[in-house]
Design a protein around this nucleic acid. Structure first.
Length: 162
DNA sequence: GCCAACGTTGGC
DNA sequence: GCCAACGTTGGC
């Protein structure tokens, strides 16, 4: 269960690149490739046991109904240096980084569950619990963000075992 | 330190 | 595909 001190997060991913179905198949994954300092700081603040909401972004209106919350994950390992920053063959390669001075970090996440029905972004507007959520702020591009407990509990209602 | 130019994100 | 909003870069 959730112990005191558990924090809640939401991470975005483009399902055409990496989806919750990929996470389900792999069971765990290193959440790498994030190249924004604010998001990086949140990744580093993640602790084992923290709960994570998975959001599918950049899903066109012609796609699968638009961007949506896809399911749940949890943090199993705190962030370590993101290996892709050192890999010149990776799109995440950052020539300014070295192993002595890494800049980008990635925690390991574990699949928890995929929602039976996607929770579409369009359905979130007007939800009282989410009225201050960064996810819904116009122009927000932050791909890792903290959730308040009431925001998280709102998303929890869409899990199968709640 | 300012800010224009640029590249990217991501909803629509 | 469009484009507004954003973050970063780099000249000054």
């Amino acid at each position: 269960m959730m112990e005191g001190g558990t924090q809640f997060w939401l991470v975005k991913t483009e399902p055409s690149v990496y989806s919750i179905y990929d996470l389900k198949r792999e069971a765990t994954t290193s959440w790498d490739g994030v190249r924004n300092y604010q998001a990086r700081n949140f990744l580093r603040a993640m602790k084992t046991g923290d709960r994570v909401v998975i959001y599918h972004s950049s899903v066109g209106p012609k796609g699968s109904g638009g961007p949506h919350v896809a399911g749940m994950a949890s943090v199993i390992t705190q962030a370590v240096p993101d290996e892709t920053q050192f890999d010149s063959n990776s799109s995440g390669f950052d020539p300014k980084c070295s192993r002595e001075a890494p800049r980008w970090w990635s925690p390991t996440l574990r699949f928890v569950e995929c929602f039976e029905t996607p929770l579409y972004r369009s359905a979130l507007f007007g939800v009282k619990e989410l009225e201050h959520c960064e996810l819904l702020r116009k122009g927000s591009r932050l791909s890792v963000l903290p959730l308040t407990s009431s925001e998280f509990i709102y998303f929890l209602k869409f899990t199968s075992n709640s």
